[in-house]
């Protein structure tokens, strides 16, 4: 018998592969990654959201609570190329107008791809 592929298929929603396709199509792309969580947070460390310069997105870094703000930052990152480390949460001292309804805190790293 032939040896079967031990890791078949595109098993998961492939955010990085999609982001690479956007890059190849000439779009500016930023990648947001959850790097730390405290308390109750909807998405675990390593969760990713890719955003293109038209605001299209794939993946998530929360249950939808902070994506809007992350996309806004991502567009700035695509513009100036400087990565940013963002903090979101109830006791956040930064003037974010968004927060996590669940009471948790997350830290999101946003970087430009390509």
């Amino acid at each position: 018998m032939s040896t079967p592929n031990p890791y078949p298929g595109e098993a998961r929603e492939d955010i990085l592969a999609e982001a690479a396709r956007w890059l190849d199509a000439g779009k500016g792309v930023a990648l947001a990654t959850v790097v730390t969580t405290w308390g109750s947070s909807p998405r675990p460390v390593g969760s990713q959201l890719a955003v293109d310069d038209g605001g299209r997105m794939i993946g998530s870094v929360s249950g939808g609570c902070i994506e809007g703000a992350v996309v806004k930052e991502a567009l700035d990152v695509i513009g100036d190329g400087k990565p940013r480390l963002l903090d979101f949460g109830v006791s956040n001292e930064q003037a974010w107008e968004v927060g996590l309804a669940c009471g948790g805190k997350v830290q999101v790293y946003v970087e430009r791809l390509g």
Binding site: L16, A17, A19, A20, L23, L31, E111, R112, L113, G114
Partner: peptide, 10 residues
Amino acid sequence: MNRDTLTALL
């Protein structure tokens, strides 16, 4: 993340 790193990950 540069394109080479992304390609290597994929």
